[in-house]
Design a binder for these strands. Sequence first.
DNA 1: GCTTGACCTTGACGCGACGGCAGGGTTTCT
DNA 2: AGAAACCCTGCCGTCGCGTCAAGGTCAAGC
Lengths: 244, 244
Amino acid sequence: MRIGEIAALVGLTTRAIRHYHHVGLLPEPERRPNGYRAYSIRDAVLLARVRRLTELGLSLDEVRDVLAEDAGREPAEVLEELDADLARQEADIRERRCRLSALLSEPPDATGPVSPALAALLAQAPRTDSPSAAKDRDHLTLMDATNSGSQEIFTLLGTLVADPAVVELYERLDALAEAPVDDPRIAPLAADLMAAVPEELFAAIPEDGVVVTGFKEALLAEYAPAQAEVVGRLMDAFMERGRG
Amino acid sequence: MRIGEIAALVGLTTRAIRHYHHVGLLPEPERRPNGYRAYSIRDAVLLARVRRLTELGLSLDEVRDVLAEDAGREPAEVLEELDADLARQEADIRERRCRLSALLSEPPDATGPVSPALAALLAQAPRTDSPSAAKDRDHLTLMDATNSGSQEIFTLLGTLVADPAVVELYERLDALAEAPVDDPRIAPLAADLMAAVPEELFAAIPEDGVVVTGFKEALLAEYAPAQAEVVGRLMDAFMERGRG
DNA sequence: GCTTGACCTTGACGCGACGGCAGGGTTTCT
DNA sequence: AGAAACCCTGCCGTCGCGTCAAGGTCAAGC
């Protein structure tokens, strides 16, 4: 048989068979005088087994191991390992499909799914179009997505945002958008913000959660200079209280 | 943030993030004076979404489509397509695991699993260590593995192998191993073999099944010259009766 | 004899999502 | 001042083939 014939017989492509020769999975057969490969029935039997094994999901290396069974009992080992692997993949896919269906059934809010704790927090927060509040929501969503803060923080923040006075604080922060860094409103706003934070929140701040080195400066870069001054003081205070 | 920091924050490797820049999934951020990439919070939010999507199994191209949602409703389409894809994969894996478990529970006969019809046939065949019979078993197993013959053939062959006289035929074929091609035993053996084949078998031979071009010569190459003569005559007769 | 078309040959590149390494520079800590 | 831990660019490797590219071979039809 020529390569195309044996390929059709066992249901492989000629390219696959040549590949098997190339990687040493199947020895090169004799050649006809014209250089064509001449396959025997034994080759077909071998290739049929290779096909069955690869269709089961074995890699070519594993197929080689199974076929070159010197030990006689190796195959079972390989196959059991493969089954475990497939089981993992199956569970993996099931979980992904699960999360996918959750995504599909949800309203398209474009921010993606959030944890229940954060969802509750956002629903609870008063409606405001303050840019600072929007930034805060973004940052909280990021914390949620990266799991860098514990769920506990969101529930604790719930008691904060329930206070209608928080909107006023955001507005005072917004007002500093164009202000110079030595604006006199900075210090009192920082103090009022600190005062608004419930005591338990300090304890809940993880030592090395969001506070990855460099995160702080990136966060401050989001704000205008005077605003950054306020936020920076807040974060400094947080980190000091957290360590203390 | 530097690249290592944002990578730790969103749970990716620096290499992956640079790869995303490379393929245009995420624009290159500003650089610091020393050439380091300077990431913002917005980048982190973006990367977090990328991570979630790739973890769901989307390709980077698909992620790009979903993120660059100009149409607003594209994502659902992509996600549904993905779900269908995952469903296919899941079914695929389940089938493989099914066949794998069948393989594992079977006794290790080293020839792999065979169809029930062939298994019955082999169990039914008389015990003999005739080399010709061994070849025949190999060829039948190959036909089974490649689905090139119908199951029907095996059941029809059952009536043939049940006849104890068949063993004698195999032995007569074995005896020709060293014989010259003009051995006088050739013609009568071929005739007796033809006579032993039940009539229904001729009708069951598929027109273009095993009889791929070149298969015949490969099969004949398995035998000694005188034996090949016998087998060749048999096959010629088969093909003529099949066509007639 | 000549063409056509279906085969065959070797060899090299492409894919997808990065990992790893080479060969350098920068920052920071000690 | 040296070492550790970062950062940079760029290129090769993975896996199982598919897909050209640039030919050589063979049977059939004119």
